[in-house]
């Protein structure tokens, strides 16, 4: 059984078919690249998988369970987390508080105990803090824990987005252009972290524009164009696939 499977997944916005009959199968432990020209529908696919958009047609299966019409927070609780393409953060909270929201569901102590701040609730709170600090440490930003999120540099904002997604303890992690706008050093560090996330046993789907990054880190790649699957295979196969080359070159010429 594949970890994630979409069957005939489609999404229309008015007359625009952003995603069209997409069959995508991702196995446990994979690091899958999802690429395509601007507007190909990559982010929309993420929205459909995570319950942020309702598909016009088709189904999404996660661990053999149909999650097509499940609300977003339940999907997150089932183990699919995402980092958004935009730096989407709780800007007025500190870095640590941002990550703690991600730890939210894995640290529940029961509403009443939580409310009354019983010892066990306080202990869980401390555990959540420790976990959040560990994750921040992993993302190389533990020293920024008490800074407001709005004060972070662009690179660190991207890192924080990934840290928050990790805090949910996902089985499947969806990363939407995590290195966009980063300088080469930051970008290299992020790529290294994505590798290590995957080594921890978390399945990753990576949307990325930088061919170098995708070819470098993914062992399987799916190419989207105009909402449809254009090609799928190993980086080497994708690189010399004439359809893919045309889709990208055609885009550049236009």
């Amino acid at each position: 059984m594949a970890l994630l499977e979409t069957r005939g997944l489609s999404k229309s916005f008015g007359r625009l078919e952003a995603v069209k009959d997409l069959d995508l199968t991702v196995e446990q432990g994979e690091l899958r690249g999802l690429i395509g020209p601007n507007g190909a529908g990559k982010s929309t696919v993420f929205n459909l998988i995570t319950g942020f958009d309702v598909p016009t047609r088709g189904t999404v299966w996660f661990r053999g369970e149909n999650i097509t019409n499940v609300p977003a927070h339940k999907i997150a609780q089932k183990g699919i987390s995402r980092a958004f393409q935009q730096s989407y953060l709780f800007m007025f909270s500190t870095v640590l508080e941002n990550v703690l929201v991600g730890c939210h569901m894995s640290s529940r102590a029961g509403a009443l105990r939580e409310f009354l701040h019983t010892r066990s609730a306080r202990m869980r709170d401390r555990e959540a803090r420790n976990k959040a600090m560990e994750i921040l440490d992993f993302m190389g930003m533990a020293h920024l824990a008490d800074e407001p999120a709005s004060s972070l540099s662009h690179g660190y904002q991207r890192c924080l987005g990934v840290a928050m997604a990790l805090a949910c303890e996902p089985t499947l992690l969806l990363l939407d252009e995590p290195v966009t706008g980063m300088n080469p050093t930051e970008s290299a560090e992020m790529v290294e972290r994505i590798r290590r996330i995957r080594e921890k046993g978390i399945t990753v789907i990576l949307v990325e524009h930088s061919m170098e990054v995708v070819m470098n880190v993914c062992e399987r790649i799916t190419v989207l164009s105009y909402g449809q699957k254009l090609a799928e295979g190993l980086p080497a196969e994708i690189q010399c696939n004439p359809l893919v080359v045309e889709a990208y070159l055609g885009k550049e010429e236009a």
Partner: peptide, 22 residues
């Protein structure tokens, strides 16, 4: 409490909060 944390999260980013399981 955690409840208040979830409330503030919802207030400052509805979609972000739900993507984190709130």
């Amino acid at each position: 409490s955690r409840i208040g944390r979830a409330w503030s999260a919802i207030g400052s980013g509805l979609r972000l909060a739900s993507s984190l399981g709130v």
